[in-house]
Design a protein around this nucleic acid. Structure first.
Length: 353
DNA sequence: AACAAATCCAACCGCTCATCA
DNA sequence: CTGATGAGCGGTTGGATTTGT
């Protein structure tokens, strides 16, 4: 397949930001002659740009139907839903968002949505809870439960070599985790408050635990607690069938349509946090030890609040939502993002595939 | 106030696909 | 069939802006 020539191999062509004058020339030309034939367009329009650059400038910035301004909650919702099905098919996603370009959506995803999901303990690629976090919890949980030591006796910071592997925040997190479990005298640890209080730290877990060093950490704890025979290994964990887990926890993992709620929640309006807690507390016991060890990472926070605006998708491009904190937006985002998306997706994306 | 770090986003780059001679 | 070209896509870059110290 032949490779098209690029702007870079043509000398004398301007690069970089467009000037108002260039924009005017491009707009004038396209208004008179229409777009297309991008290769010859710049010459005819009197522009010292390559056709590719002209096309991008027109499509991403100068088109009259371009919608500028912040993304609405509804748009964000659509992006997340579609991304869970389509992946990084930005142009396909953009087709469902009038006035938005693939480039804009891609940028918004990378700079906002992706970070939100990571903060919530959700893998932005798979749209599922990050197993690495589950693994860490499992390692700690298993190690302690199989150890004769209490968390008071087990100071993670003093573990040989562990301090160099984990940052202080992570150590504090792990220690808190173990401590909370120790205090509960039960394996049925509700991590809700713990997770909510440690969202920034949990986000750090991702990067830290993704590295191969995680295995070293596991080995360190493993050795220290002398629980080698029963410690869950990584293979066991990756074998967890999350779909079965979702079936087992139908409420915890259910799709919640944010459009059913108002944003912001009216004062006094019961939030789903309460409902969620009740549901979790009343859920049937999960029999396997593996499932037993699963924390609530991400799940409870995902259900922590309700809400969203009901701004029409085609509303003004200057739609901004004021008076809501970033955390509230995160919560909103988390609500609309759930794990059963493909089967409960409201949008008909079949035509796009 | 000054500087550094982080964030954002327009624009670029390299690639693939479709079409046509 | 083959190669040239146009068009489009997704990933990346770099400069401007914002935020933190």
């Amino acid at each position: 397949m032949a490779k098209s020539s690029t702007c870079s191999d043509k000398s004398g062509l301007k690069k970089g930001p467009w000037t108002a004058e260039e924009d005017e020339k491009l707009i004038d030309y396209i208004q008179k002659h229409g777009h297309g034939r991008w290769r010859t367009l710049p010459k005819n329009a009197g522009l010292k740009r390559c056709g590719k650059s002209c096309r991008l400038r027109w499509i991403n910035y100068l088109r009259p139907d371009i919608k500028r301004g912040k993304f609405s909650y509804e748009e964000e919702e659509i992006i997340i839903k579609l991304h869970s099905v389509l992946g990084n098919k930005w142009s396909t996603i953009a087709a469902r968002l009038p006035g938005r370009t693939d480039n804009e959506i891609k940028n918004y995803w990378n700079t906002h949505i992706k970070k939100k999901l990571l903060r919530m303990g959700i893998d932005p690629v798979t749209h599922k809870p990050r197993l690495d976090l589950l693994q860490l919890y499992s390692v700690l949980n298993s190690s302690l439960s199989n150890s004769s030591l209490s968390s008071h006796q087990l100071n993670l910071s003093s573990l040989p070599g562990l301090g160099s592997l984990l940052n202080p925040n992570l150590l504090n997190l792990a220690t808190s985790l173990l401590s909370s479990q120790d205090n509960s005298h039960s394996h049925d640890v509700n991590l809700k408050s713990f997770h909510e209080n440690n969202i920034p730290v949990i986000a750090q877990l991702h990067d830290q635990f993704q590295s191969s060093e995680a295995n070293q950490v596991q080995n360190q704890i493993h050795t220290y607690t002398d629980s080698s025979s029963q410690l869950l290994n990584q293979t066991q964990f990756t074998e967890i069938n999350l779909e079965q887990l979702y079936d087992t926890l139908p409420i915890t993992f259910s799709w919640q349509n944010p459009l059913q709620h108002s944003w912001p929640p009216a004062s006094g309006e019961p939030t789903s946090t309460t409902n969620c807690d009740n549901r979790i507390n009343s859920q049937s016991t999960i029999n396997t030890r593996t499932i037993d060890n699963l924390p609530n990472f991400g799940f409870t926070s995902l259900l922590s609040t309700t809400s969203c605006s009901t701004t029409p998708l085609n509303s003004s491009s200057t739609t901004h939502v004021n008076g809501s904190t970033e955390d509230e937006k995160d919560s909103y985002c988390s609500n609309m993002f759930m794990f059963g998306i493909p089967c409960s997706l409201e949008l008909d994306v079949s035509g796009l595939l």
